[in-house]
């Protein structure tokens, strides 16, 4: 019986990184080592699994923002692109999901992000059922609402218009957030369904994150950070219904400079 095959050679055999002569020699010796043969078979199976799982990505259309970035020559207009990229991915129906129990992330946005959907969901749950006092300042005083909340948040607040999506402004209220005053803007459609947009400002925030999605029971939340501002849009709507609304809001807000 020939000597056992050197492990590095064996890997090179499985990976097709040997010359024809070497490959033939290893193949001949493998016949005498069924355990090593089984090992190679297992490695080949692993490779097949990897290709099977991840090769479909090769055939997907490129997110437009990534293609644009490659063509841009690296001009620094990247922050909006990042969000646009995420939106593009979602929009084209990339459903390869976020999986695994956890992921390592760079620090800056993570604290805010980790608690954002929960805080937004709590605010939504508390105020949406209110019949008489869902908001502190109503839509009939929109200018006052904007001025007041902007003053309390310490940053100019914009109230996105969602008429095209079938939602009219109910009004807004001041709410506590981890970093001081926050705002909750409420919308309603003709069927009485309500959406809330939670906004808080934290100077510790910077940069931008992709859109993220969370679901708590029947409540859907899309949330993201842009500049110092953190946003969360919540509603008891299916994800696919809420996404275009979140996209509209993002686009309306993205035109604003961020401190």
């Amino acid at each position: 019986m020939s000597e056992r095959i050197d492990r590095d050679r064996l890997h090179a055999y499985a990976d097709g990184q040997l010359s024809d002569d070497e490959r033939a020699a290893i193949a001949a010796r493998l016949a005498e080592h069924p355990d090593q043969r089984a090992e190679v078979a297992d490695w080949l199976r692993q490779k097949a699994l990897l290709h099977d799982a991840y090769d479909p990505l090769l055939a997907e259309p490129l997110p437009p923002a990534l293609a644009a970035l490659a063509a841009s020559g690296g001009r620094p207009r990247l922050r909006p692109l990042r969000i646009a990229a995420a939106l593009g991915w979602i929009a084209v129906g990339v459903t390869l999901g976020s999986v695994g129990d956890r992921f390592w992330r760079p620090a800056p946005d993570s604290t805010e992000l980790a608690t954002l959907p929960h805080r937004a969901a709590v605010a939504h749950a508390v105020f949406v059922p209110e019949v008489r006092h869902p908001v502190e300042v109503g839509a009939d005083q929109e200018a006052h609402l904007v001025a007041w909340l902007s003053k309390r948040l310490g940053a100019r607040l914009r109230v996105p218009g969602l008429r095209a999506e079938g939602f009219h402004l109910v009004g807004g209220r001041l709410i506590p957030s981890d970093s001081g005053p926050g705002a909750l803007i409420m919308y309603e459609d003709s069927a009485g369904r309500r959406l809330t947009l939670y906004v808080c400002i934290d100077d510790a925030n910077s940069g931008a994150t992709a859109f993220r999605y969370a679901r708590q029971d029947t409540l859907s939340t899309f949330y993201w950070i842009d500049g110092h501002s953190a946003y969360a849009l919540s509603g008891e709507l299916p994800r696919e219904t809420l996404l275009p609304i979140a996209t509209t809001i993002y686009r309306q807000l993205a035109g604003e400079p961020h401190g």
Binding site: R102, R105, P106, L113
Partner: peptide, 8 residues
């Protein structure tokens, strides 16, 4: 710094 991010 590693931080936990919720899975979707």
């Amino acid at each position: 710094r590693p931080v936990l991010v919720m899975a979707d």
